[in-house]
């Protein structure tokens, strides 16, 4: 059947356009305006040209935050993706227990970010938290407010706890879509467990895994609330990731110009990743993956 072409439908998205204009475009324009000016408050602005961008590009603080951010995203991806696949492979494929697993796995995904932060902040405390108290009792020195390693350990474990289920659920959906005939053929060929994974399951999961990787990378790249609640960016600047640094600069120090330049560069990186994400997804869809 031929589709009717009716461009009038575009008018129906106008309300969304107006909403986006107010919630995103106008604030973004203001940020661009701030990034080329200096202000001392009272709505008085002085032209600064590209000075803030230059300052930010030379700022060790920003590069360090970017380094920490990339390290954080790299570590959580390296843990969550293989772990998620492992969990998905071991989940029951049907029946009562598969439903139980699915419900249990979705629970962490439903908890708001600041609550996750609070849970882990208390969980890790040496005086009242189960994790902190236990580690302390067995003689492992653990204090996320003073020890850099402990702080990183806590925010990484927290992210893994919060988001591995997402990877697992996506991988599970990929696994469920494999027809039984593939496994039967593998059995006839006497393929080993590893070969079944390598040549059947992994290629069939590739599409959803790609989505999982990109989603987790983008999300972790913009993470703010959870590490902020747990460590506040400390000890020192050890867990000050990009967005935490940005908020410190914009609201803590009220350096609007540099913060605006910083956030524009940050935005560019996110925009690039979003485009890659979109391209990969549409390409996979076209391939029918």
């Amino acid at each position: 059947m031929e589709k009717t072409v009716n461009q009038k439908a575009w008018f129906l998205v106008l309300p969304v356009l107006v909403l986006v204009a107010f919630s995103a475009v106008i604030p973004l324009m203001t940020v661009v305006n701030y990034s080329v000016q200096d202000t001392f408050g009272q709505n008085q602005f002085f032209w600064a040209g590209l000075e803030w961008f230059r300052e930010m590009l030379e700022s060790e603080r920003m590069w360090n935050a970017l380094g920490r951010q990339l390290l954080f995203s790299g570590i959580i991806l390296a843990i969550e993706i293989p772990l998620g696949i492992f969990v998905a492979l071991n989940m029951p494929k049907s029946g009562f227990w598969s439903s139980v697993c699915l419900v249990l796995m979705s629970l962490p995904l439903l908890i708001p970010w600041n609550v996750v932060g609070t849970i882990w902040q208390i969980f890790g405390r040496v005086d009242i938290g189960l994790l902190g108290y236990t580690l302390d009792a067995v003689g492992i020195s653990y204090n996320y407010t003073q020890d850099v390693f402990a702080a990183w350990f806590t925010i990484i474990i927290m992210d893994v706890w919060h988001w591995t289920s997402l990877v697992a659920l996506l991988a599970y959906a990929g696994l469920k879509s494999i027809p039984d005939a593939y496994y039967q053929a593998a059995k006839i060929d006497q393929a080993s467990r590893w070969n079944v994974f390598r040549y059947i399951e992994l290629p069939k999961m590739m599409g959803v895994l790609m989505i999982a990787i990109l989603l987790r990378f983008m999300d972790s790249f913009m993470i703010y609330t959870e590490p902020f609640v747990v460590t506040g960016g400390g000890p020192g600047n050890a867990t000050t990731l990009l967005s935490i640094d940005l908020v410190k600069m914009a609201l803590g120090q009220f350096d609007l110009g540099p913060a605006a330049a910083f956030s524009l560069m940050y935005n560019l990186v996110i925009l690039t990743m979003a485009y890659v994400f979109y391209t990969v997804m549409t390409t996979l869809e076209k391939r029918g993956g």
């Binding site: 324009m29 203001t30 661009v32 305006n33 701030y34 000016q37 709505n43």
Partner: peptide
């Protein structure tokens, strides 16, 4: 509009 702190170069950029 004053709160948006417009300048000519940024206005030209968006235009």
């Amino acid at each position: 509009m004053a709160w948006m702190a417009w300048t000519w170069p940024t206005a030209a950029f968006f235009a």
